[in-house]
Design a binder for these strands. Structure first.
Lengths: 239, 239
DNA sequence: CGATTAATGGTCTTCTTGACCATAAAGGGT
DNA sequence: ACCCTTTATGGTCAAGAAGACCATTAATCG
């Protein structure tokens, strides 16, 4: 149909859901809340909430993120619109259309519990188990999206502190892709992408435990990676 | 906020908008309708409409597409969810959240005019001019999405008839990317991607005008292209 | 028939990638 | 203090991929 006027338009509730990810202890973690009310009381779910009347979905997502993590608008926070989920019946109470977002954080604080939720916590994605609503699906889509983002954009730096070593950046890739990478080759490729990372000029160095101190880098201005950092192909060719 | 119950949820109108693209006469065309009613009466717009109470956005998009083009569910029709647009004020009448989709068609029929719209037509993207609402933005996003789809997925075959020559496939890439490609190198790369295209066994051939007859291919089973077909980098390196 | 056009197959050179090796520079343990 | 482990960094080498071209084939157009 071409116009907005011919058919009566049903009202829908519109929400945002957030897959907020971070890399912690070599594993991808997601911010989850334990629902305090029916339906799905006691189950873990992605944080989210209703759009306010004058908000865009992006604005609502940033507001929800600030509320959940206690962080106010982080400068340069990457917030990716993931997908919109609109299947009838995805919320047993009413018709809800939800716009899902992915956010990538480095060194986030522990979320403040309370509010509607019984608690809020960072949990490893592998331990997420069965989430409320269709949030398992959303989380799976978010993980796949992030894997692709690391290939084609500089998003990996969002998982790192403002200054980071190439070893830390490589660990982000290894964690998200779940693949070991050759340190020397990764360095060569990362440095070959214009605008991906920029060395911190003041010969700065940092020791993170054992081993030789590493040079520090900052995120570069590039949003798209040319050439992309392709993840190694999985086994199973077509010979 | 963590629950769906604490705050009153405002009702929103939810629509789908469709950027239906096809390659015709060496140019990317988009299906547009001329609005018959205010606002934006007389202006071209993307086809779209309201979700029905029991429809998912995908279902609504397919229904709208069938209504606009007169085509019933095409087998294997590619329908990509593009993005959701939710800025307040994007529709002057009321708060509308719109889920945008991209569809790729080969040899589509002329759309039937009528309905709410004054007329419906295929127009070259370059001649789209200024569309109603925020549809210029949606169309621009759709074009960029399709450019990326050709790199990483087998979506280009959706612009081709069921059996096609590699020359036709290459013209799709050249049109969408707006870049000339070397015929021999394109062939080598396309055939090297497992599952991208499969030769039609019966030594079938087809002549499309002048030149040597070309072998026919069908779309292969691959959804993701490994390795991807990267578009040639634009000028402007960092030497 | 000869010119033109498009498909297809090959070559050649350059670049990229992955696998590895070597060295440097720190910490830990004895 | 000394050796071992760990991580960073630089370099090599061979295999593969990509872009630039050339040659041949097989149609249509004039």
């Amino acid at each position: 149909m071409r116009g907005y006027d011919k058919y009566a338009h049903e009202p829908f509730a519109v929400t945002v859901d957030l897959a907020v990810l971070t890399v912690r202890a070599g594993a991808l973690h997601v911010l989850l809340v334990e629902r305090g009310q029916e339906p799905y009381a006691g189950r873990w779910a992605l944080p989210g909430g209703f759009l306010l009347p004058d908000e865009s979905a992006e604005t609502a997502a940033r507001r929800e993120l600030a509320e959940e993590t206690g962080l106010d608008a982080l400068p340069g926070l990457r917030l990716e619109q993931l997908r919109t989920y609109s299947e009838p019946g995805r919320d047993p109470r009413m018709r809800v259309v939800s716009v899902a977002f992915t956010a990538l954080l480095a060194d986030p604080p522990e979320p403040r519990g309370g509010g509607d939720a019984a608690q809020a916590r960072w949990l490893p994605c592998t331990a997420a188990g069965t989430l409320a609503f269709d949030h398992d699906r959303i989380l799976a889509d978010a993980r796949e999206r992030v894997r692709a983002l690391l290939e084609n954009t500089g998003a990996a730096t969002a998982f790192c502190p403002p200054e980071f070593t190439l070893g830390e950046l490589r660990q982000v890739y290894e964690t998200v892709w779940d693949t070991p990478l050759d340190a020397a080759n990764f360095r060569r490729k990362a440095l070959a992408v214009p605008g991906f990372v920029a060395p911190v000029p003041g010969a700065a160095r940092l020791t993170q435990g054992r081993g030789k101190p590493a040079a520090l880098y900052r995120a570069g201005p590039a949003t798209a990676l040319h050439p992309p950092l392709l993840r190694p192909p999985r086994e199973g060719r077509t010979p």
